[in-house]
């Protein structure tokens, strides 16, 4: 029983390791031809960094969706036509908006997305500061003891 769970754990961690280190093992096999390795590298980079609009959380290279296939074909065409990565990203943005980027552009609409976490961190910082301050400023009360009480106290603390 114990042995089995160890095996499961081992298999799971191996799979996770493979998933993390080999993001392209599930990439779709397209037979696009390029003039050189640089173009091919850019194709791989773009189709890894752009998100498939249909399938929520798969990049273009990993998606079997119809539209992802079409967009890969368009990227290939644009690379061969000599368009830069920026131009290709602009092409995608004009049609599919911020959603297409895993790393959205910094714009008025995306500013909360970029700096929201920082905002929450600052708010949390203020709250934590408030709590600690209140905890430290608990009123220290001084009480005068009469002789009898003083003797009792000394007895209690073993003086």
């Amino acid at each position: 029983m114990r042995r089995m769970s160890f095996n499961n754990l081992f298999l799971t961690s191996m799979s996770v390791f493979l998933l993390i280190t080999q993001p392209n093992i599930y990439a779709q096999v397209d037979t696009f031809e390029f003039d050189n390795d640089e173009q091919q590298g850019r194709f791989r980079q773009l189709s890894n960094e752009l998100r498939c609009p249909m399938c929520q959380n798969t990049n273009l290279s990993g998606s079997t969706g119809g539209v992802a296939e079409d967009l890969r074909r368009e990227i290939h065409r644009m690379i061969l036509e000599g368009m830069s990565n920026e131009e290709i990203e602009q092409f995608m943005f004009e049609r599919y908006g911020d959603f297409i980027f895993y790393r959205p552009r910094l714009r008025a609409e995306t500013i909360l997305l970029w700096f929201g976490p920082l905002l929450f961190l600052i708010i949390g910082g203020f709250i934590a500061y408030g709590i600690f301050r209140r905890a430290n400023s608990v009123d220290r009360v001084t009480v005068d003891l009469d002789e009898e009480q003083e003797a009792k106290l000394n007895e209690l603390v073993g003086k």
Partner: peptide, 13 residues
Amino acid sequence: ENGRFGIDLGVYG
């Protein structure tokens, strides 16, 4: 047929 016009419209399915 090949979805090219759909891309210009931002169609995704």
